[in-house]
């Protein structure tokens, strides 16, 4: 879902950068207020894991592959959608500048899609579903799946506004492929949250109804 430079005109890329910068500023305010010394290793290890797993494309049929995005995972584990913005921004900067994975002028759009939309949709869906169903793993899976799909649909709309994709075929293809890729997102999110909750239950932030 990393948008390359060629897919969005400079003027539109600038608009997404402005939106991204607003959320980056808010994420820094969150980090300044909420980040404890104990949480720093978890945040950094999460970033390293998200970087590695984003490079691991798994086949999802239909001649397509996909990988974990990680916005929902970061937001749920750290208890704030701004945590996803904080982590994904730094990961996307490294990927874009060093590895050409995602563009420079489109980095704002990538931060908005994967960090902001992924983080907010994942976090609030998880909390809403947890309250409604009291089922942690099902809530995690659905929240991460939905975060992946909604981010992809937002990306399809951005591609339409950029004149890169027609609207309906873009929405259909992005929605279909990421509905399949979202299964990977959901599965890895369930596994990772349970793994970290077992290893460091003291630093993970989960709703009270499902905390161990």
């Amino acid at each position: 879902m990393h948008i390359p430079d060629a897919f969005i005109p400079l003027s539109q890329g600038a608009v997404y950068w402005i939106v991204a910068l607003i959320f980056i500023a808010l994420s820094l305010r969150w980090a300044k207020k909420e980040m404890s010394e104990e949480k720093i290793p978890l945040v950094a290890v999460l970033a390293a894991g998200i970087f590695a797993i984003q490079a691991f494309n798994l086949p999802v049929a239909m001649g397509t592959s996909g990988h974990l995005v990680g916005g929902a995972l970061a937001a749920i584990i750290l208890g704030s959608p701004f945590a996803a913005v904080f982590i994904l921004t730094l990961v996307l900067v490294i990927q874009g500048i060093l590895f050409g994975d995602g563009g420079i002028t489109t980095m704002g759009a990538n931060i908005v899609n994967m960090g902001v939309i992924g983080g907010f949709v994942g976090y609030y869906t998880f909390h809403g579903l947890t309250i409604a169903t009291k089922n942690q793993n099902a809530s995690l899976f659905i929240a991460a799946w939905l975060a992946c799909v909604v981010s992809a649909l937002a990306c399809a709309i951005e591609m339409y506004l950029a004149g890169t994709f027609p609207l309906v075929p873009g929405l259909v293809a992005m929605g279909l492929y990421h509905a399949a890729i979202g299964v990977i997102e959901g599965g890895i999110t369930v596994f990772a949250v349970n793994l970290i909750a077992t290893a460091r239950p003291d630093i993970i932030v989960l709703p009270r109804a499902v905390s161990a």
């Binding site: 879902m1 990393h2 590695a52 797993i53 691991f56 494309n57 397509t64 992809a152 492929y177 890729i181």
Partner: peptide
């Protein structure tokens, strides 16, 4: 664990395009 995932990615990652590339 992150390095192990990265090493596996080098050898096992799918060569198929991702969702955005497939849509393109």
């Amino acid at each position: 664990i992150a390095i192990c995932i990265g090493v596996l990615a080098v050898f096992l990652a799918s060569g198929d395009p991702d969702g955005l590339e497939s849509t393109a």
